[in-house]
């Protein structure tokens, strides 16, 4: 019972936050609301007993990405969205409504939440739950799956993070002395 109440409250707040994000034009306030949105989803994950996912969502979604987006705003110095006034919302609205209706129709075939007979629970999950303690001796099944059974996946994820770091360094890393150095050299050539 209490779970249902918490779910309804969290989902209502999620919807309110989403509508507020759509209606606002101040980018700084929108970023703050994005952080709140992430934090509410983290709460939902906790209610669904997915603590590891909730932890990641709270740390990455609400924490780091908020800071990075604020840094981006400080960099681009755009504080407000521009409104052109010629915008006609009907075609996008129709596309969104049709896509949403299709997705809702699709969920009708999905097994109920936590259904033990669901195909996802019958594939490798029973093996992980039964064998993770004898195989690895690690009480947290999530860690056993992430780091050991699917270690190769996690290696790929780490390489993705590493690649993102390299990409940022290549695009905007380093000191911005080059342009002024070029200018100075040109001035030298002129004189």
């Amino acid at each position: 019972m209490i779970d249902i109440v918490i779910n309804i409250v969290l989902l209502a707040f999620l919807a309110i936050t989403a509508i507020a994000i759509v209606r606002m034009t101040n980018l700084f306030a929108i970023i703050m609301l994005f952080g709140i949105f992430s934090f509410l989803s983290a709460g939902l994950f906790v209610v669904m007993d997915a603590v590891d996912v909730a932890f990641t969502e709270a740390a990455v979604g609400a924490g780091i990405s908020t800071v990075l987006m604020i840094a981006t705003i400080a960099l681009t110095k755009v504080q407000k969205e521009k409104h052109t006034g010629k915008h006609r919302p009907w075609l996008p609205l129709a596309v969104v409504i049709i896509t949403g209706a299709t997705l809702v129709y699709g969920t009708l075939d999905i097994p109920a939440f936590g259904d033990p007979e669901a195909p996802a629970q019958k594939h490798v999950a029973p093996y992980y739950i039964k064998q993770s303690i004898p195989d690895t001796g690690v009480p947290n099944v999530v860690t056993a799956v992430l780091a050991s059974y699917r270690g190769f996946d996690t290696l790929g994820e780490v390489v993705v993070v590493f690649t993102a770091g390299i990409a940022v360094l290549l695009l905007i890393g380093g000191k911005r002395t080059k342009q002024s150095a070029i200018k100075k050299e040109r001035e030298k050539d002129d004189t």
Binding site: L68, A71, G165, V168, L169, I172
Partner: peptide, 19 residues
């Protein structure tokens, strides 16, 4: 180690750019 270093690299390069 990788995640913390990459997060700091991204943050430093974004913020260092506005210097």
């Amino acid at each position: 180690i990788t995640v913390s270093a990459v997060m700091l690299i991204i943050f430093f390069s974004f913020v260092g750019r506005s210097r």
